[in-house]
Amino acid sequence: MAFFSSPNERLAREIIDRYPRPRSALIPLLHLAQEQEGWVTREAMVQIADLTGSTPAEVLGTGSFYEMFKFHPVGRYMVNVCTNISCLLLGGEELLEHVESTLGVRSGGTTDDGLFTVEEAECVAACTEAPCFMVNYRYFHRATAETFDAVVADLRSGRSPLVRGNAGDRGTMPPHGSLGRVRQRIPADRRAGIVPPEQVDGPPAWLPRPEEVGSDG
């Protein structure tokens, strides 16, 4: 039984097609699997191995290196609270404590209703906007306990909390697993040509041929 839905399998092949070697698509396909299911299942890894010319063990070997991939079910909303240095200085730990006590789970845990998973995060590149947390990898800058409570209330009642982030983000909040809400598409007639490196044997067309130039070619 294939794991990917047929639109996602087409998408997977389109992604693979953008790389000179299929294995380079391994991480994007793990993301796609997580987008479909919310986490990375064994069936997903088997099919990704098949699509990228790897073994399931290699897929797990790569995937397990990266913190964002979850190999067990997690909440619909992944809450990451940064406690690294800049956030620590301005109350990141207190914010994490508030998040944990509000949701009743410790870092790494998921609420009983399956809505929220909490993680203590390493630096998320919002240091001037500390303290900061993310929900499904969307930013909430200069956050307070009140910000977090309002975000939870929004999500429980089906509203998008993104404007509360003061991070220039707006629109809908996709469920865990989805990252960018826009996908890259390369139209067939606009492709420059992506081939395995072995099939390239000379400089690209816009460079002068070696015989036309002096030393600095």
Partner: peptide, 25 residues
């Protein structure tokens, strides 16, 4: 026509592919 085959009608042909990581400093 700013990226891909024949950028701005010239010989420059480059595909730019967005790739994204998964959490590892």
């Amino acid at each position: 026509d700013l990226v891909g085959a024949g950028v701005l009608g010239t010989d420059l042909s480059v595909d730019i592919v967005l790739h994204w990581g998964a959490g590892a400093y």
